[in-house]
Design a protein around this nucleic acid. Sequence first.
DNA 1: AAGGTGACAGTTT
DNA 2: TAAACTGCCACCT
Length: 112
Amino acid sequence: MAIRSDFFKDVYDVVRLIPYGRVSSYGAIAAYLGAKTGARMVGYAMNAAHAEVPYVPAHRVVNRNGMLSGKRHFGSENEMQLLLEQDGILVADDQVQNFNKVFWDPSLHLTL
DNA sequence: AAGGTGACAGTTT
DNA sequence: TAAACTGCCACCT
């Protein structure tokens, strides 16, 4: 595949917009894109984001539970947690601590 | 062209 | 209460 749908590009753009020390959820991104795309598509996009440039902070994207559901897709399972910790995000038991506190909703940032 | 897959989310049993 | 099922929709074989 030469190019990807704009949908993927949108996902990457939103993910890259996630500020330092913040995390987002697949559902939030999907909702920002229209809620119809389906959260699964966001995760699927992340699958390709691994090879995207510039770098897509996929580690800042977790499920609505704050769980690092995609950690296994990284080089190492600890890598995602490590990256999050570098962002100042506390992670324990593959789960983002203070998730409600560090949660960043794209629609919240671009709306209101 | 058609079927199967998936880094989710919400509902039901 | 936890576990399982379905719905979602684009991508891949």
